[in-house]
Design a protein around this nucleic acid. Structure first.
Length: 465
RNA sequence: GCUCCCUUCGUCUAGAGGCCUAGGACACGGCCCUCUCAAGGCUGUAACACGAGUUCGAAUCUCGUAGGGAGCGCCA
């Protein structure tokens, strides 16, 4: 039997990082077992579902590279099918119409809570066959009164629920529209889902779904309930924790493979390994290795992993991403070769591609000011003469490569009897306006001879005065 | 309130009864490397929630306690 997993988000907001983790585990499990990954949009809540949210989810998954094999399916397009199954259950006596009003139910709940009981429907219409004129009924599923629902969860082990704890849930609203728990059951059955992998906030829904599946004569899927992802403070993940939407990570300069690598290690591990390529995740991931406890999101570790991925990726992989971030800053960088050199020079000194773009702006824009503190520290009385000598030597240089530049600069330093730093820092300051850049030889090589000399000239004029 | 779930360094985790003087990673501190910043190397601080029990032996098994979370909707 081929493995079939599904990711079933509801389009009531953007795709958030917890949802992406769930999607990732579903996707990895399907890929690992040469199965199928199915995308299903659970949009039965007509009030809150929006087309923008649907697009956001699709964009997020595409950016992350989690491609689906089937779908997206939309529950709103399957209402006829749900109606059919509801009729079937009604006809078989496995469901019934309930004419309770919302007010009546609310009162029931209030009384139960007052008595310290678990609020639940008491089944007062379960055996009635009459109707109440003027009231549009809901349809309820006849949950077994006795016995137990046993969920053999891959991550939690066997979890047993007493049927007596469960009530008869509504499967069709008074307007006839089907409800979430019911749609899930019909869809998982129709789509022949073999493994339901989802957040463990759904663990409590599982016994109801299991009972409905059994009532419909379907073979229940394997269940795996993943631990939740918490904010850095250990509280439930929300907007105030910063980036929650998947697309924000793209905008902040994270690589999708790094985000996935970070997420896969939340709740899953493979010995002591921290770095995983997508291919490694696909071949190593297994739900039996998922642990049970919730994990707090840690931006520093994500940033570290992002850098690790940047350092190991082929430079050409990063070029278009860096170009995009530069464009966001109003910098048009046409020369791909130069961008590739920048990537190689900068990737070990930036955690994100956005940071790399910021750090690399000076390659495209001559500094309009020099860091004052640095000028005071590095531009002493001896610097103009030192710089002048370096400029002369650089002007003579034909082969403008990092190695040749290095030779020239260290040659000047040695000749003047000063440490390389005494020359490198003034050069750096002149060329990029600050004290931080890749090694000075590489920096000048990337900048080009003409631009280097032009910037040095400007600085000389200023510092000689 | 009731039901269900969870509990190893600050954080992510390794750990399937002796291999644990509890390992790795992020973060943090120190040292090294060094033209700046990084990256890298070495190194340090730091955890089995608590209490019983089972066992020759428990982070690992059982039961309690405490703390955290989820669910209990004509939301998904």
């Amino acid at each position: 039997m081929t493995v079939r997993t599904r990711f079933a988000p509801s389009p009531t907001g953007f795709l958030h990082i917890g949802g992406l983790r769930t999607a990732l585990f579903c996707w990895l499990y399907a890929r690992r077992h040469a199965g199928r990954f199915i995308l299903r949009i659970e949009d039965t809540d007509l009030e809150r579902s929006t087309p923008e949210a649907i697009q956001q989810i699709l964009d997020g998954l595409e950016w992350a590279g989690l491609d689906c094999d089937e779908g997206p399916f939309f529950q709103t397009k399957r209402f006829e099918r749900y109606r059919e199954v509801i009729e079937q259950l009604l006809a078989e006596g496995k469901a019934y119409r309930c004419y309770c009003t919302k007010e009546e139910l609310e009162q029931m709940r209030a009384q139960q809570i007052a008595r310290g009981e678990k609020p639940r429907y008491d089944g007062r219409w379960r055996e009635r066959t009459d109707s109440l004129p003027g009231v549009a009924p809901v349809v309820r599923f006849k949950n077994p009164l006795t016995g137990e629902a046993v969920v053999d969860d891959v991550v939690h082990g066997r979890v047993i629920f007493q049927n007596s704890e469960l009530d008869d849930l509504i499967i069709a609203r008074s307007d006839g529209s089907p409800t979430y728990n019911f749609c899930v059951v019909v869809d998982d059955m129709d789509m022949q889902i073999t493994h339901v992998i989802r957040g463990d906030d759904h663990l409590n829904n599982t016994p109801r779904q299991l009972n409905m599946l059994l009532a419909l004569g379907a073979t229940p899927p394997v269940y795996a309930h993943l631990p939740m992802i918490l904010g850095a403070d250990g509280a439930k993940l929300s907007k105030r924790h910063g980036a929650v939407s998947v697309l924000e990570y793209r905008d902040q300069g994270f690589l999708p493979e790094a985000v996935l690598n970070y997420l896969v290690r939340l709740g899953w591990s493979h010995g002591d390994q921290e770095f995983f390529t997508i291919e490694e995740m696909q071949s190593l991931f297994d739900i039996v290795d998922v642990n049970k406890s919730a994990a707090a999101f840690n931006f520093e570790k994500l940033a570290w992993l992002n850098q690790q991925h940047m350092m190991r990726a082929p430079p050409a992989r990063l070029v278009p991403v860096l170009r995009w971030h530069l464009e966001q800053m109003g910098i048009e960088a046409a020369d791909g070769t130069q961008l590739e050199q920048i990537v190689v020079a900068q990737r070990e000194r930036a955690k994100t591609l956005r940071e790399m773009a910021v750090n690399s702006a000076f390659f495209f824009r001559a500094p309009d000011a020099y860091d004052e503190k640095a000028v005071r520290k590095h531009i002493g009385a001896e610097v103009p003469a030192l710089l002048a000598e370096a400029v002369v030597a650089l002007e003579r240089l034909e082969a403008w490569t990092a190695a040749a530049i290095h030779e020239v600069i260290s040659g000047v330093a040695v000749a003047r009897g000063v440490a390389l730093g005494k020359l490198a820092q003034p050069l750096r300051l002149a060329v990029c306006g600050g004290t931080v850049s890749p090694p000075i030889d590489a920096t000048l090589a990337i900048l080009g001879k003409a631009e280097t000399l032009s910037r040095l000239g400007r600085a000389q004029a200023l510092w000689s005065a």
